[in-house]
Measured scan of single mutants.
Amino acid sequence: LKGVVVAGGVLAGAVAVASFFLRNKRR
């Protein structure tokens, strides 16, 4: 169960970083 929580956190972080980079590329 702990691994699932960690994986979810990593996935959420990756999505946040990806969206951040996409926003920067638009400018």
Score class of each variant (00 low, 15 high):
Val5Phe: 04
Arg27Pro: 06
Val6Ala: 08
Leu22Gly: 00
Val4Gly: 00
Arg26Thr: 07
Gly3Gln: 12
Leu22Ser: 07
Ala18Asp: 00
Lys2Met: 14
Ser19Tyr: 05
Ala18Trp: 12
Val17Cys: 10
Leu11Glu: 01
Val5Glu: 11
Val6Phe: 00
Gly8Cys: 09
Gly13Phe: 09
Lys2Ala: 07
Gly3Thr: 11
Val17Met: 14
Phe20Pro: 00
Val6Ile: 07
Arg27Val: 03
Val17Leu: 01
Gly8Ser: 14
Arg27Ile: 08
Gly9Asp: 11
Gly3Ala: 04
Lys2His: 05
Leu22Asp: 03
Leu11Trp: 11
Asn24Phe: 07
Phe20Lys: 13
Lys25Ser: 05
Phe20Arg: 11
Gly3Cys: 08
Val5Leu: 05
Gly8Thr: 04
Leu1Ala: 04
Arg27Ala: 06
Ala16Val: 06
Lys25Phe: 07
Lys2Asn: 02
Arg26Gly: 07
Ala7Met: 12
Phe21Glu: 03
Lys2Thr: 15
Leu1Gln: 00
Gly8His: 15
Arg27Asp: 02
Lys2Leu: 09
Arg27Phe: 00
Leu11Ser: 03
Gly13Tyr: 02
Phe20Thr: 09
Asn24Asp: 05
Val6Trp: 09
Ala16Tyr: 02
Phe21Thr: 11
Ala7Tyr: 14
Gly8Lys: 12
Leu11Lys: 03
Ala7Pro: 11
Leu11Val: 15
Phe20Gln: 10
Val17Arg: 14
Gly9Gln: 15
Leu1Val: 01
Gly13Asn: 08
Val5His: 02
Ser19Cys: 10
Val10Tyr: 01
Gly9Lys: 07
Lys25Tyr: 07
Ala16Gln: 15
Ser19Leu: 08
Val5Pro: 05
Leu1Ile: 02
Phe21His: 06
Ala16Thr: 01
Ala12Tyr: 15
Ala7His: 09
Leu11Thr: 06
Arg27Asn: 05
Asn24Trp: 01
Lys2Cys: 03
Asn24Ile: 15
Phe21Ala: 10
Gly8Val: 11
Lys25Met: 13
Gly3Tyr: 01
Ala14Ser: 08
Ser19Gln: 11
Asn24Arg: 13
Ala7Asp: 08
Phe20Ala: 02
Ala16Asn: 07
Phe20Cys: 13
Ala14Pro: 05
Val5Asp: 06
Lys25Glu: 07
Ala12Ser: 10
Val15Phe: 11
Ala14Phe: 01
Gly9Ile: 08
Lys2Ile: 11
Arg23Asn: 06
Ser19Ala: 13
Ala14Asp: 01
Phe21Pro: 00
Leu1Ser: 05
Gly8Asn: 11
Val15Asn: 06
Ala7Lys: 13
Val15Cys: 13
Val17Tyr: 02
Phe20Tyr: 00
Ala16Gly: 02
Val6Lys: 15
Asn24Glu: 07
Leu22Glu: 02
Arg26Glu: 04
Ser19Phe: 00
Lys25Arg: 07
Val17Thr: 09
Gly3Asp: 04
Arg27Tyr: 08
Gly9Trp: 00
Val5Arg: 13
Lys2Trp: 06
Leu11Met: 11
Arg26Ile: 01
Leu22Lys: 08
Gly13Glu: 14
Gly13Ser: 00
Ala14Asn: 08
Ala18His: 14
Val6Glu: 09
Leu11Gly: 07
Arg23Met: 00
Val6Asn: 05
Val6Leu: 05
Gly9Arg: 12
Val17Glu: 00
Ser19Glu: 15
Ala18Val: 10
Arg27Glu: 03
Lys25Ala: 05
Gly3Leu: 12
Val5Gly: 04
Val15Asp: 00
Val17Ser: 02
Val4Ile: 08
Phe20Leu: 07
Gly9Pro: 11
Ala16Arg: 14
Val4Asp: 06
Ala18Phe: 00
Ala12Phe: 14
Leu1Glu: 11
Ala7Gln: 15
Gly8Leu: 14
Val15Gln: 06
Val15Leu: 09
